[in-house]
Design a protein around this nucleic acid. Structure first.
Lengths: 243, 243
DNA sequence: TTCGCTCCTATTGTATACGCGTTTGCCGTC
DNA sequence: GACGGCAAACGCGTATACAATAGGAGCGAA
């Protein structure tokens, strides 16, 4: 039970209208839900009923709707008109698009990152990579997935281009969703030592090498997916029973 | 008075609660406001009061807030906590980021576009380019700006990567905002015949050439901007009245 | 026994009401 | 005459109430 994090049933003590924090509270709830999705605690297809969420987090549906819309715009949840919200189940096509986009942007960013990376950055990134490896070893897939996404996002930020970095972060979130649907349970996307190796290239300022390595890295992740189309509506029937 | 476009004061005739279209209506209003911003009918810094909009479009503030939030997430409007919404005034840094991003993505997409472009695509794009030229000649800057953004967006879609195409569209919208702030009144971003020339390369399948041309095209636009920092808070005052 | 129809419930979409913060104009005082 | 405080109003943030719709369950007929 870790997602409410700060629910505290404020219904009881706090006055309903008394905000005081307002925006921060929303941000915390947003991150709570977002994390739960990225860490696969909420699986693709899971329904997110508004009043259930509003009760869990102790705010009214109005606030929940706002957060849900934001998540929908980032394509982490799907908002079907009269059916409510559910965790997005990426299609195979979307998966391909996302990884192609990551290939283009993350690789393209590497030279600039290699140019600008500082010792402090390296230290922080190594720490993240280390914690990711630990989590992986300890069998905590949730934590590992989140750390991996955070690693890629942080890396992108070093480029200095906030717009592209934000986009990369969103792509990583969606990638996490893709892994949940198409990933094999056996191994996660990122190999244990890939991130460390990458940092090595960056530390030595070898932008080109880092770029090539990132390309391989992403290709490896994508290749590890098992893209099985599983059609939508009454999918096969003919196909299945025609044999 | 051109921005309402489809207001029709439905308050009088239509019942308030009777939806029937609902989502489409929202979409139309969203596009209305979005277009007004992109076409510079609403200038950066312009305030967008919620109840004014709700009255103009004949829906309640709830719906307006939803739309405003969507626009904020696309960074066309800025939502300051207790101050309301206003059209975003991009900073110089954001401008650089946006054009760097366009440089990376749009150029990177060109080879694939050259590979996949069809005769129908070419026809549609040529038509858009023609209309853009006409608008420019007729002095209708608003229409020209919108058509230019639509041209770039359409082009990106041909690549087949919906994710990247959507991102390019958003970058183009923001570019339009940047032009409004930093652009010289004299000439718009896109030169008259650049788009036609680009289509020529694409038609002949010369992806590399198209890529290089797009790069020059974007660099030309960016170079035409006059980036003057104009600070945030109490921006000039000292600077202005010190002369 | 199965298919179809109808009613019901659950859940979202929309509007409105209320409270708070911010701002701005005004007045009193120094 | 100018500066500082005060008050009122404007406008946003949140919650709640109502309306509409889609899904499902139950019942009846073939």
């Amino acid at each position: 039970m870790n997602q409410p994090q700060a629910a505290t049933k404020r219904k009881s003590g706090g006055r309903p209208g008394k905000n005081g924090d307002g925006a921060e509270r929303h941000e915390a709830i947003y991150r709570s839900i977002s994390d739960a999705i990225i860490e696969h605690r909420l699986k693709p297809g899971a329904r997110l009923r508004e009043d259930a969420l509003s009760e869990v987090f102790g705010i009214s549906r109005t606030g929940i709707r706002k957060i849900l819309q934001r998540l929908a715009l980032e394509q982490l949840v799907t908002l079907t008109p009269r059916r409510g919200a559910s965790v997005t189940r990426p299609t195979a096509e979307e998966a391909k698009d996302v990884f192609d986009a990551r290939q283009m942007i993350e690789c393209g960013l590497m030279p600039e990152v290699a140019r600008r990376i500082t010792a402090a950055d390296l230290e922080a990134l190594r720490d993240m990579a280390r914690r990711e490896r630990q989590a992986l070893k300890a069998g905590e897939q949730s934590a590992a997935i989140k750390l991996s996404a955070a690693f890629h996002g942080r890396l992108a930020h070093i480029s200095g281009n906030a717009t592209l970095a934000a986009f990369v972060e969103r792509l990583c979130s969606r990638s996490s969703l893709i892994l949940a649907v198409y990933g094999n349970a056996g191994h996660l996307g990122c190999e244990s030592h890939d991130h460390d190796d990458l940092l090595g290239y960056l530390e030595r300022g070898e932008g080109e090498r880092a770029q090539a390595f990132m390309s391989r890295h992403l290709k490896a992740i994508e290749a590890s997916l098992s893209i099985h189309e599983e059609e939508e509506e009454t999918p096969d029937l003919y196909q299945i029973f025609s044999s």
